[in-house]
Design a binder for these strands. Sequence first.
DNA 1: GGGAAATACTTAACATGTTAAGTGAATGCG
DNA 2: CGCATTCACTTAACATGTTAAGTATTTCCC
Lengths: 152, 152
Amino acid sequence: MRDFSRSLPMSLLRAREAVMRQFRPSLREHGLTEQQWRILRALAAIDTVEVTELARTAFLLGPSLSRILRDLEARNLIERKTAKADQRRSMVSISEKGVKLMASVAPSSEAIYAEITRRFGARKLVELQEMLGELERNLAELGAGEEATADE
Amino acid sequence: MRDFSRSLPMSLLRAREAVMRQFRPSLREHGLTEQQWRILRALAAIDTVEVTELARTAFLLGPSLSRILRDLEARNLIERKTAKADQRRSMVSISEKGVKLMASVAPSSEAIYAEITRRFGARKLVELQEMLGELERNLAELGAGEEATADE
DNA sequence: GGGAAATACTTAACATGTTAAGTGAATGCG
DNA sequence: CGCATTCACTTAACATGTTAAGTATTTCCC
């Protein structure tokens, strides 16, 4: 069998870990995990969203998001209110405090990203991301097709 | 700030998830998680290793590996014995049962990998992995250098 | 309009990720 | 030798990943 240290999942895992290792210390200093930061970033750009849509944007599964939102709400970093038209839906938005926290984290985060870009090369980085996007699209089709083949 | 859905960590995360989504159902049918499978694959190629070296190979943190080895040992998929020369070290190897389990999983795993390769293109896949490897090497230097700057 | 089915979450349960602390065994060295 | 330090793990504690089940609300449709 193929040497698994060169398998695609391992390559992706190692690369991602190498990248996140750069960001985690800074986030940690501000009391945020990677996922919490993803959520705040998503909220900062969207104003108000439903939980399901936020899960898609921040690329988190529902249960994870549910727990994290509970925590972020307790820390007053986000706000929630149930939608009037549909009591099932809960609308989430970033709070004033959340905005300030983001402002305090963003500079170092941007600096780290800039350093990574500088080291790897801006052009190459774009190229890498295009390949990753293409891979994702290729496999999305594959995964979706299977559900129609057998109904169990 | 940059649209975070196009950030490098997100691209890597989404791509990896798209890949793993293909493998997980098959592994699950055989009662294995992704990490357990990584460990068995690593062991199959190495005969006998210390836990620390296995952690490096399977790219798992010590605590995760500790828990998983406990479980795999209970299921008789691996074997352990403490090294004679150094009682701290524990030597791990795959068991007969573990080898058989691998043999039963490998075909479908290989088929999935082949399908991914076919869809994405073998050449492009190699190119992608080279870029990922280069990114990892670039950032490894960066992360290692910081520890020397401040002693705390 | 009333009950089955779908929807939008939330909880639960178990596995792993992540950091810190603990334990026992080897090493360094005065 | 003796003891502080280092080393190889393991435990602990908390956060997230992952799947399944639960709950409340809506929608569908007869």
